[in-house]
Nucleic acid binder design. Sequence first.
DNA 1: CTTATCTTGGATCAGTCGTTCCAAGATAAG
DNA 2: CTTATCTTGGAACGACTGATCCAAGATAAG
Lengths: 208, 208
Amino acid sequence: MPDVKHFDTEQVLTAVERLFWRQGVASTGIQDIVSVTGLSRSSLYSTFGGKDELYLAALRHYLDERSRPMLDRLVADGRGLPAITAFFDRLIRLRCSGEHARWGCLVSNAHTGDPDPQVRKVLDQHHDALSTAFRSSLLAAHGLGQLSAGDDVDATAEMLTLLAYGVNLRSRSGVRRATLQSGVMAALAPLAKKTRCTAEARGHDLSG
Amino acid sequence: MPDVKHFDTEQVLTAVERLFWRQGVASTGIQDIVSVTGLSRSSLYSTFGGKDELYLAALRHYLDERSRPMLDRLVADGRGLPAITAFFDRLIRLRCSGEHARWGCLVSNAHTGDPDPQVRKVLDQHHDALSTAFRSSLLAAHGLGQLSAGDDVDATAEMLTLLAYGVNLRSRSGVRRATLQSGVMAALAPLAKKTRCTAEARGHDLSG
DNA sequence: CTTATCTTGGATCAGTCGTTCCAAGATAAG
DNA sequence: CTTATCTTGGAACGACTGATCCAAGATAAG
């Protein structure tokens, strides 16, 4: 009976994801993938198809393994504003330290260069998921009476989305973590309800 | 005596800038540049050098012709917060409509892929210029008594920078202009001093 | 074991990459 | 005009691109 694959698809996809993530699609050649994964062109093409389909698979893998867990955790955290603060804290930590420091976000990086329709669709899905997660947390914050009177949930969610894209993009330039933290805090702090227009009501500390 | 160039350097640089801007560096070949500019490889290489130097020249051209004028206008506008609002209004209009719609920002786009030291330096310079311009406007706003008591100028400037990067990146996905406007407004409105915690004091309308 | 079926290594493909080179063309001083 | 000097068109380069192909190897049911 037939032979079976001599490698683990999951491991290969992770390695390819890392390659595309760090160097970008255009700068990553099939040869790079062959070198890193150790498998041959035959296996690569018979398993995943061409480079475009491989990129798409890596993108979906990133969403499943990296992006979605972050968003699920944000939505599951019912604390409202502190949940959002904690989300950005984790995001900035991931972007500025550890093995993926200065790699940005694979999805954000994909926004440069004109993606084919399938990739475009994945990017849009990711954006919807991110935006929806923010809306969910903001609604929770509203329910908990944390928001200022004039805060528009949809507009604020869009603002947070822009902020996340900004963090992702700018983290590639090696900006200091504290700089990103203060920038995000400057956006989050004014959201909190200011009962007597005092400053301590804004106290969402990213370093917490 | 020697022959003179048969083309206008400025025009060529503009065309090259447009190519890199729209398609990215990695996706733009020398052949594309030859086709668009109409001049030959000889002229190209003897005038600008290789592709890397051509990209650097295009980047600097973009900064001089596109970026710096925007920032100069922001700094020159002494109105404080309304100046910042007007800046983002212009930015979003440029990113979402006209001939450069959905092209993003050449400098922001450059953040994906690992730039050589010279490019990196240009990117850092651009970021400093942007951040400094925001700080300048925020200081003006502070002097005019427009800011809330707890607003930190440096942190807020960083926040606005992240927001601008977010707008640039996200505009490439073809997001609606109104969506970006509402997102930016959600970040700008809370900055304004709220004397009696009322909403009308926040009235910086992007559609103005 | 045999054997059918899939996988694998690696040669190979045509095409494109950025770059170089040189003869032919253009220019303007003498 | 001649002539020195630069520019230009276009052929050509080797290296690399993504992709294909096939014989050899691996697997497991019979």
